[in-house]
């Protein structure tokens, strides 16, 4: 469904993403992990059309999407959420989600029905009349997810939708994501919460300092010395093994 090869993106002298390749098959949940500043969000932004990569190819559903603006990529069926949540502050949750729903629905009452259904799906049914600005962190994260989902995507790019949530909230959102996949949406997610990654993802990629250093099932990755070192520092793998 998504094939990324050799994507690079620099900011000034900094190579935030450096020759990264990955692929996602329809129906999968794939995790993208890596330490802070690894370039994960930058890679998402490039996929969704927010940054034009300096090099590389992005093929979504058999179509080269490099250079397409974000709204066209969203219309093609790939939508991102924001790690730093971007709610529409002065309108209600219902209206926020309707913005997403209007992508494929012209009629107001149908868009509202869709927004309410999506809100129920992500557990926001009770907050429909609250303003974007009045939501808690957990509420904002759910809203990111709900708005993206309302656009009717085939591939969801979720950027740390669990950061800042408490364990109960994480368990809830893990269930929500599982249900989204079951409804036929493919998911690529960035996540630091390992418990969630292991319980959700079929496969994972590990990014470190802009480079992809490992990929595979979670068991494979956990046993990969390069990954352990990326997280814990140089030499850590040997220390752990000893």
């Amino acid at each position: 469904m998504l094939e990324v090869s050799g994507i690079s993106k620099s900011f000034g002298g900094l190579k935030a993403v450096d020759g990264v390749s990955l692929d996602v098959q329809a129906g999968e949940i794939v995790a993208l992990i890596g330490p802070n500043g690894a370039g994960k969000t930058t890679l998402f932004a490039a996929l969704a059309g927010f940054h034009r990569p300096d090099a590389g190819r992005i093929v979504f559903d058999g179509r080269d999407i490099i250079g397409l603006p974000p709204h066209r990529i969203c219309a093609a069926g790939m939508v991102r959420t924001f790690q730093i949540t971007q709610p529409f502050a002065k309108i209600t949750v219902r209206e926020n989600i309707m913005v997403g729903a209007y992508l494929r629905i012209d009629d107001r009452s149908k868009a509202r029905d869709r927004a309410e259904a999506v809100a129920a799906q992500v557990g926001m049914a009770a907050q429909l009349d609250r303003f974007g600005a009045d939501l808690t962190v957990a509420g904002r994260k759910r809203l990111e997810l709900a708005r993206a989902l309302a656009t009717g995507p085939r591939l969801l790019l979720l950027d740390e939708v669990m950061a800042g949530l408490n364990p109960t909230e994480i368990t809830e959102i893990v269930e929500v994501i599982r249900a989204i996949r079951a409804s036929g949406v493919t998911i690529l997610l960035i996540e630091h919460v390992m418990q969630a990654v292991t319980s959700l993802a079929d496969r994972a990629y590990v990014l470190n300092q802009g480079r992809m250093i490992a990929e595979g099932t979670l068991a494979e990755i956990a046993g990969n010395p390069a990954v352990v070192e990326a997280y814990l520092g140089h030499g850590a793998a040997e220390v752990l093994r000893a």
């Binding site: 969203c74 219309a75 924001f82 971007q86 529409f88 502050a89 997403g100």
Partner: peptide, 16 residues
């Protein structure tokens, strides 16, 4: 209104 409130979010949600 989406454009007014947040252009990046609007763009991500398919708005030109």
């Amino acid at each position: 209104v989406a454009v007014r409130e947040n252009e990046d979010a609007a763009r991500a949600l398919g708005i030109d």
